[in-house]
Design a protein around this nucleic acid. Structure first.
Length: 200
DNA sequence: CGTTCGATGCACT
DNA sequence: GTGCATCGAACGT
């Protein structure tokens, strides 16, 4: 079952918690890839200094202010695409960053895409549980790019499904990789899951 | 263990 | 011109 728009039109922390265990599916000409979400972070409103909406509306962060249930994809550090699911009512800028997946489908395609990254030309291939470990890696493995920005997650090539997957315990911790807004415990992970990014 | 740093693009000031 | 919601290798302790 594809998650309906109303799933996303809720408090962002609730959406973040409930996205754990849901399945992100991406269809492309090259094939289908899918993975279960095991790590997310919430970015909530203009008062959250780490949220892209902190400085008010701009052309880039416009999707955050738009309707819920759509993708907000942007380029970071010049080489990594980051994928978010927009939450809350229209006009309330907030989203959940998808940070890691447990690969379920299309692993060979994921591995092919990962090996094409500029910094790993000629390097050893990636083990299964590392294919979608980290927000940049996940987008590369799934083939998610800026062209997916603003696309609805309720239909089309990029969707999120409830397949009844039950992972282990969900743990809340500080968001990682940011310089401001670290006081909030807005990162949800599956406890001890191998595909979760960060230190072991 | 820890820290540093190169690869790389673009929105924002 | 600056600074990122990164990745992974190359160092130093």
């Amino acid at each position: 079952m594809i998650l309906p728009v109303d799933f996303y039109r809720r408090p962002t922390l609730d959406v973040a918690r409930d996205l754990i265990g849901k399945v992100l599916v991406c269809k492309s000409k090259q094939g289908v890839t899918a993975g279960a979400i095991v790590e997310v972070e919430a970015y909530i409103g203009e008062d959250d200094p780490a949220c892209h909406a902190a400085a008010g509306p701009t052309e880039r962060n416009a999707p955050l202010y738009g309707p819920p249930g759509r993708a907000y994809v942007y380029l970071n550090y010049g080489l990594h695409d980051m994928m978010n699911a927009v939450t809350e009512e229209e006009g309330h800028p907030a989203a959940v960053l998808i940070r890691a997946l447990e690969p379920l489908e299309g692993l060979a395609l994921m591995r092919r895409r990962r090996s094409r990254a500029p910094w790993r030309k000629g390097k050893a291939s990636v083990s299964d549980h590392e294919l979608c470990r980290g927000p940049g890696n996940l987008c590369r493995a799934m083939g998610i790019t800026l062209t997916d920005n603003t696309r609805p997650l309720t239909r089309g090539p990029l969707t999120i499904h409830d397949k009844g997957i039950q992972h282990g315990e969900i743990v809340w911790s500080q968001r990682i990789g940011i310089r401001v807004g670290t006081e909030h415990q807005w990162r949800a992970t599956v406890y001890n899951h191998r595909s979760v990014s960060g230190k072991r």
